[in-house]
């Protein structure tokens, strides 16, 4: 779950990388226990304040990390510590496991499709919204576009059923155009179409939310540049090419790096709520695979932990890389 929560957190915050640590590095001083004691005492209430949060984070985020040793053990009901080690047996099994390789492949393909098709869309949308001159219409459009972001995939899965299902309105419209297409209508159970459905429905849900960060970047561009451009007679295209795009390019770069950094996240909430057995072939991602392996068959806890660990390690490496690149781009990063 922690990974899914993690995914939600990053998803909720388009401006993640722009956050800068505010604690300043202090010059190193010789150890002086009395002074240290005094300082700790001075901040005693500060320690008290953060204690509850640290305890909660420790329990729900760090204790599960201890359980990761199951990936190298044969799980016994006696408990995590009592289970015997089996070295890398789970990992060896994993690499030859057809469902796993399929899920890994699907995760990467869906992520790539999301990046290639879904990533540029909010940027284009933000540039288009920016061209709207009436502030009120801008506001109304943004409000509408952002609304689906706040709804759960549980609910949206129901709406998709209503649109694209056997009795859905899309089929009814297709029927008028060409009854033959409607006769073998099967969109929600079609393995070939599933990945496209995932990518486009996600764009529909999140594009408006994605524009917020770019519109904020546009708002941060120096007004004088636009005035100068106007005096020089720059047209709309030139304005976009020479002022707007350069003004938001660093934000685009950061968002891109972050997006690539979360390649291993296929979007559990969305896929779990919209997939079905006929589309496992193209739609099953690592998270859904782990879930099904854990709860729907005679579970091998060690094996599924190993699959989860594999995903998290790759994820971790990607995120560190993304972080290093963001830093190289001159942005302040989380650490």
């Amino acid at each position: 779950m922690a990974e899914i929560q993690q995914q939600r957190e990053t998803a909720m915050t388009p401006g993640g990388a722009a956050i800068a640590p505010s604690a300043r590095r202090r010059p190193r001083e010789p150890l002086n226990w009395k002074r240290i004691g005094k300082r700790i005492w001075r901040y005693k209430w500060i320690y008290v304040m953060m204690l509850p949060t640290l305890i909660v984070i420790f329990i729900f985020r760090y204790i599960p990390m201890y359980g990761l040793q199951l990936a190298f053990k044969n799980y016994k009901l006696a408990g995590i510590a009592a289970s015997p080690w089996n070295d890398f047996a789970h990992f060896k099994r994993m690499l030859g496991y057809p469902g796993f390789m399929q899920a890994l492949k699907n995760t990467l393909i869906i992520s790539l499709m999301r990046i290639v098709i879904g990533f540029p869309f909010p940027i284009i949308l933000a540039l288009m919204i920016n061209e709207v001159r009436l502030r009120r219409s801008k506001r109304v459009l943004q409000t509408i576009y952002t609304f689906p972001h706040f709804l759960s995939w549980v609910l949206l899965a129901g709406i998709m059923l209503n649109m694209f299902g056997q009795a859905g309105i899309v089929r009814k419209v297709i029927e008028v155009i060409n009854p033959a297409w409607a006769a073998d209508w099967n969109l929600l159970y079609d393995a070939g179409a599933y990945r496209w459905m995932v990518v486009f429905s996600d764009m529909w849900k999140e594009a408006g939310w994605g524009t917020i960060i770019y519109l904020a970047a546009i708002a941060g561009i120096d007004e004088a540049l636009f005035e100068a451009a106007a005096i020089d007679g720059a047209g709309r295209g030139q304005r976009i090419r020479h002022i707007l795009l350069p003004g938001i390019i660093s934000m685009i770069a950061i968002q891109f790096v972050l997006r690539v950094g979360s390649m291993m996240e296929g979007g559990f909430d969305q896929i779990f709520n919209t997939y079905n057995e006929p589309v496992y072939r193209t739609g099953d991602i690592i998270d859904t695979f782990v879930y099904r392996m854990t709860f729907q068959r005679g579970a091998d806890m060690g094996f599924t932990t190993a699959v989860g660990l594999f995903k998290n390690v790759v994820n971790f490496a990607l995120l560190l890389m993304a972080n290093a690149i963001t830093r190289a781009l001159g942005q302040r990063t989380l650490w």
């Binding site: 779950m1 922690a2 990974e3 929560q5 993690q6 957190e9 990053t10 640590p21 604690a23 300043r24 590095r25 202090r26 240290i36 300082r39 700790i40 901040y43 500060i46 320690y47 953060m50 949060t53 640290l54 984070i57 729900f60 985020r61 760090y62 204790i63 599960p64 990390m65 201890y66 359980g67 990761l68 199951l70 995590i80 782990v290 879930y291 854990t294 806890m301 599924t304 932990t305 989860g308 660990l309 995903k311 998290n312 994820n315 971790f316 995120l319 560190l320 989380l334 650490w335």
Partner: peptide
């Protein structure tokens, strides 16, 4: 600027990058 601020910050941020996963949870 309490003693340990950087450590606490690290401990809070680290779970964003790495987690225990479904079964341990």
């Amino acid at each position: 600027d309490f003693i340990g601020n950087r450590v606490v910050r690290f401990l809070i941020i680290f779970p964003l990058y790495f987690s225990g996963g479904l079964i341990p949870y």
